[in-house]
């Protein structure tokens, strides 16, 4: 059963081989193999690479905005305890909404529609709970004696925050960033439902293709690799920023 389906490419979609004359070049596709390297390299620069880049941008924006919001809220909750509960409740609520539902529910919101903004709003929403909780936990876990000593030496609130609390909260903050980043990379594939960019686009197109799975596998693998790379990078950043926790028994 040879797949004529393969030819049905849409504008802007991946270049789908046309099985015209030189069948030799597309032997893999015609044999319906699991993964065709030829297709992969052929579509790398036109489809996969741009999708990967868009994906990175989607994730970076989402995590950056999510981090900024969470940091503000966490600092607020650190100073004023009553802020914590409502923030936890609201962000947990957002976190509970399944991704498919949240993306769809944002579409009719005025100013959003089918756009990157919609995708970002949803992605940001999912980062808040994790980031807020980790930052706050990090700030709260600074040992009391250290704080007492800092105050006793005459540090102002601001100096304590910058010189003592934030540095000591760094491991927890970065742990939160790792989780948020990795899950946003995975979640951003679903953003393709509302925003025609990122690795979700080749994934959805690969899913719709009943026979030819190279595209799905390639894009899926790139997503996982991206997540792993981002995670590794953040681990590196943490090593760099927290020299004191190095070589400490776990």
């Amino acid at each position: 059963m040879n797949p004529p389906v393969l030819i049905a490419a849409g504008g802007g979609g991946p270049i789908i081989p046309n099985f015209g004359g030189n069948g030799h070049a597309y032997a893999c596709e015609q044999a319906n193999r699991l993964f065709c390297w030829g297709w992969f390299s052929h579509n790398w620069s036109g489809t996969l690479w741009p999708a990967l880049r868009q994906h990175v941008v989607l994730v970076l924006i989402a995590v950056a905005i999510g981090f900024a919001i969470s940091m503000l809220l966490a600092l607020l909750a650190h100073r004023f305890r009553p802020v914590e509960q409502p923030v936890i409740a609201f962000t947990s609520f957002l976190y509970t909404i399944p991704s498919l539902a949240l993306f769809e529910l944002l579409i009719p919101v005025p100013g959003l529609g089918l756009s990157r903004a919609t995708a970002e709003v949803a992605l940001v929403a999912y980062t808040l709970l994790i980031l807020f909780r980790n930052i706050l936990a990090g700030l709260r876990n600074v040992p009391a004696d250290v704080l007492d000593a800092a105050r006793g030496m005459g540090m102002s609130h601001r100096q304590m925050l910058w010189r003592v609390e934030l540095p000591l909260a760094l491991p927890a903050i970065i742990a939160g960033l790792r989780i948020a980043t990795v899950s946003t990379v995975a979640l951003a594939t679903i953003a393709a439902l509302v925003d025609n960019e990122g690795l979700g686009v080749p994934i959805l197109s690969g899913i719709n293709d009943y026979y030819f799975k190279t595209e799905l596998i390639a894009a899926g693998a790139l997503t996982v690799l991206l997540a792993v790379a981002a995670d590794g990078m953040l681990v590196g950043v943490q090593r760099l920023l927290t020299p004191w926790s190095r070589g400490r028994a776990a």
Partner: peptide, 10 residues
């Protein structure tokens, strides 16, 4: 989500 082991590092 608080259980990434790095959290222990402090």
């Amino acid at each position: 989500e608080l259980l990434v082991p790095q959290l222990e590092g402090v």
